[in-house]
């Protein structure tokens, strides 16, 4: 059976490498079916552009199964596209209709400098993690699996926060480009586990300091981050981080 195909118009943000500003370029693409993913649609377009001798659209993706956090686009104003709590790679063309005009923009935030077109530099998030989003352990042989018993419920709770893939959607969706959900998720995860306990005070203080100095905004509890997070990290992560901050600031030696 012949599948019904459709065509769309794309308005894609184009920005040359190292340039400070760019423009929207219009592309038309036909012969699409609902079964192909949004990124595959961009692949088809890029192949077509290459054959025509035109410059392809720079776009980042890796695992394409929603767990690496590489892809991240703002599609018609929706961070990670119109599907709720999902990454761009999980978005399929069946969400669009024939003759739709789709505007594609990169994640925008001052600490995320653009590299080219839709590719941005998210290393500021790595810098936050480097400031304390880890536990210090002695290297050596692997410890016994059950040497530190952790309640199942507690482990699950920590895992909910550990699910963060660092895609930056929270920052992209935040009206203040704050990275509080991202930072809060890591702090909440480690504070729920015995392994994270020894460094919990210095961790929250250092990570918040790093977050502030990297140029992320201040949270104003708009809860936009929670609405877009593909891993459904809840704003309880931010509340947890705030509690950890208060505790570390007033009730520790730091």
């Amino acid at each position: 059976m012949e599948k019904k195909t459709f065509g769309i118009t794309l308005r894609v943000w184009k920005q040359e490498q190292g340039e400070q500003t760019g423009h929207f370029e219009i592309y038309k693409i036909d012969g699409l079916t609902g079964d192909i993913s949004f990124l595959e649609m961009l692949d088809i377009l890029n192949e077509k552009l290459l054959k025509e001798g035109r410059e392809p659209i720079a776009v980042e993706s890796d695992c394409r199964e929603g767990i690496c956090g590489c892809c991240g686009l703002v599609i018609n104003g929706d961070v990670h596209g119109p599907d709720e709590h999902s990454t761009v790679c999980q978005l399929h063309m069946r969400r669009f209709k024939d003759k739709d005009v789709i505007t594609i923009e990169p994640f925008r935030a001052a600490p995320f400098p653009p590299i080219k077109d839709l590719v941005i530099d998210r290393s500021a998030m790595d810098s936050i993690i480097k400031a304390g989003g880890y536990i210090s352990v002695n290297t050596g042989s692997a410890p016994d699996a059950n040497s530190i018993p952790i309640e199942k419920a507690q482990a699950e709770k920590a895992m909910d926060f550990a699910a963060c893939i660092g895609c930056g959607a929270c920052v992209a969706a935040c009206p203040n480009s704050a990275a509080m959900l991202f930072t809060g998720a890591k702090i909440a995860q480690l504070s729920l586990l015995p392994q994270g306990n020894p460094e919990r005070n210095i961790r929250v203080l250092n990570m918040v300091k790093a977050m502030d100095s990297l140029g992320f905004g201040n949270c104003s509890n708009e809860y936009e981050c929670e609405a877009v997070c593909p891993k459904e990290i809840r704003i309880s992560a931010i509340a947890k981080m705030n509690r950890e901050f208060i505790k570390a600031n007033f009730a520790s030696e730091q």
């Binding site: 308005r11 943000w13 400070q20 500003t21 929207f24 703002v74 018609n76 104003g77 505007t103 923009e105 925008r108 935030a109 001052a110 600490p111 009206p175 203040n176 480009s177 704050a178 140029g215 992320f216 905004g217 201040n218 104003s220």
Partner: peptide, 12 residues
């Protein structure tokens, strides 16, 4: 927040 705001706002 104003100091750290986006260099360019979203089109949509």
């Amino acid at each position: 927040d104003w100091k750290n705001s986006r260099k360019r706002n979203y089109e949509v």
